[in-house]
Each structure stands twice: as C-alpha cells, then as structure tokens.
Design a protein around this nucleic acid. Structure first.
Lengths: 169, 169
DNA sequence: TATTGTTATACTCTATAACTATA
DNA sequence: TATAGTTATAGAGTATAACAATA
C-alpha cells in the first residue's frame, strides 16, 4: 500500500527517534525563552520564574489557595512551597491565613500590594512574549497551543503508574 | 472579506494574549516532562539534566569541544561550565586536554567509560520519551518539531539587541 | 492513623564579577 | 589589549526525609 511506503520512507530521520528530537528542540527553545524571561524578571522586578508562576496562580484565585493545591498547580513540592511563600510574604506580596475550623489548613492569597504588583509584571511580561513571537502568525500560535495541550495529556497518561510528581512523604 | 471576519472572531480568546497562553502551556508541559526525566536520570544514573545535555553535546563530537563552544551550545555560562565539567571529570566520564599550541584552550571530550555510559543513558532516555508521547501520532511530532524550530528562530531574532544569553564578563 | 504543613539537609544550578594565564 | 578559562560568591531551586500539629 502507498501508506506503508510513506511510513517506511519517513520513519527514521537519521537513527535518532523523532520523539527525542522533538524533546530536545522543546527543551532548548524553552530554555532560551525562560533564561531571557528570568533575566528580565530579576532585573526589572527582583522576582524569579517560580515566584512569578506562584503569583499567577494566586492572581486567578481572589479567595486564595491552600498550600497543597498551590503545590500541585506549580509542580513544586509541599516542602518547597513553604520557602517560596515565605519569601513572597517577606516582600509583602502574599499573606497566609487559616480560614476555617480545620486548623491544619493554610491558605495563601495576594495582598493588595501583591495584586497590583503582579498586574504590572504580567502586562510587561506579556509584551516580552509578543515581541519574541513576532515572527509567528496567529494561526500557528493557536495550533501550537492545541498540540502542546495534547502532548501534555499524553505525558500525564504515561507517567510511571501510580505517582504524580516528585515525592513528598 | 471572509478572512477578516475570521480573524476578528478568533482574535481575543478571553483577555489574555495567545502568546502568553502558549508560553505558559509550553512551560508547564516542559516542566512536567523534565521533572520526570530528571527524577529518572538521577535515580537510575545519578545524573542531572544539565549533565545529560553536556554529555550529549560531547557524544556528537568525537574530537571533543572547547569549553567556550560547549558553553554556547548548552547555554550555560563559561564560569559554570567549569564546575559542570569538573563534576563529570570526577566521575570519570569526561577528560580535559590542551590540544594545540595555544595553551589557553581547553577541550573537553568523553572518556571511553563516558561514551559507553552515555550510550546506555541515551537509549533508555529515548524510550522514556517514546513512552510519554505514545498518544501523539508521527505526523504531529514532525509538525511540532518544525514549529518549535520556527519559534526558536523568532525568539533569537527578537532578544534584546546586541546580547546573547546571560552575562559573563 | 491519615492529613496538612513545616523543618532540616544536601546538593546542583544560576548569575555576576573579579581574576589568571596566555596571546 | 583581548581572549580562554578559572575562581569566588551569593542566592534560589530541587529532592528527600523526618517532624509537629491537628483531625
């Protein structure tokens, strides 16, 4: 069949599996962008990328998030979330509270200062990205986004059964 | 025109620019994969991702690479390459030499042990990725690869003029 | 006993800058 | 004076494990 010929012809780019090639490409592209973003976040706002990520999560949740939930969403272990939040609290951007009856629970939320600061950061941040992606047309950005989503799902499905993320017990 | 209507209709997903959405998607997907890869690299080979990356570069160059060149390719600053190479040298995977007349130049290359060790790592590593990307068909992987390449070029073109990567002077 | 979060530890990575030795 | 690497330093991220308080 014609389909088979096609498959055979394209299957081996040059000895390296295409999955690996794609991953290396993703990794270096992401590294290139995130190095630049990190550099600018620090020099202009004195913030790090994990901090920005954490603030972004809280920005979307006016009522705040429990630390365990924050840990899942940022993919940072519970133990390390404590340190991250502490640094942000010291800067006055985040506040910790024990909202309900269950005194084990802690919720982190943005302070007014934090909300305002993040809004400024996000705006500039967005412009950096638009600038870096200037040469990419709108349709391709949407395609890429959808494909990334599919890829992420596939990865989630095939992580070593029974675990999700780094250990913390 | 019909094209205009389409553009207008799709242009604003919901207040957040699509470039930013794409970037966040890329970042979390990459983080998901690389956390898993890092975990396995460490538990099965006692190696880190930057180390793997460095070894991969040397694997492709049987004659070795000058440290400056290695620094560019791995996007690790010159100062930090020294430490990375030192650790790998201590493990017996890499060797440093001064090949020519110019005694300032140092070249890093894989030892026989290093070459053999990396070959094993790379094989398993490749399988991890194929497994994680199981649900993605071949055509989409190729598409994604090409799009990543385009994206990387765009980013390179629009980094703050006159600089490439972190400072080191 | 299980859950939530904290503390402790050890190591690697990252960024910057000053320094040495060659050229 | 410019180049190739090294050293030094400071800080943050990362992974693990043991721990305390609460349920």
């Amino acid at each position: 069949m014609a389909a088979d010929l096609e498959t055979i012809a394209d299957d081996k780019p040059e000895g390296t599996k295409q999955e690996l090639r794609l991953w290396l490409q993703m990794l270096s592209t992401t590294k290139l962008i995130s190095q630049e973003i990190r550099r600018r976040l620090r020099s202009e706002f004195g913030a790090t990328l994990p901090q920005f990520d954490l603030l972004a999560q809280l920005y979307r949740e006016p009522d705040g998030l429990r630390l365990g939930e924050l840990s899942k969403r940022t993919m940072v272990t519970n133990g390390n979330i404590t340190g991250l939040v502490e640094r942000l609290e010291a800067d006055g951007l985040v506040r910790r509270e024990t909202p309900g009856a269950d005194r084990r629970v802690t919720v982190a939320r943005l302070t007014d200062t934090g909300r305002e600061a993040f809004a400024r950061m996000a705006l500039v941040h967005e412009n950096w990205l638009c600038d870096m992606m200037k040469d990419i047309d709108s349709a391709m950005i949407r395609t890429l986004f959808a494909e990334m989503e599919t890829l992420k799902k596939s990865v989630r499905n095939h992580l070593s059964e029974g675990e999700a993320g780094p250990a913390d017990r």
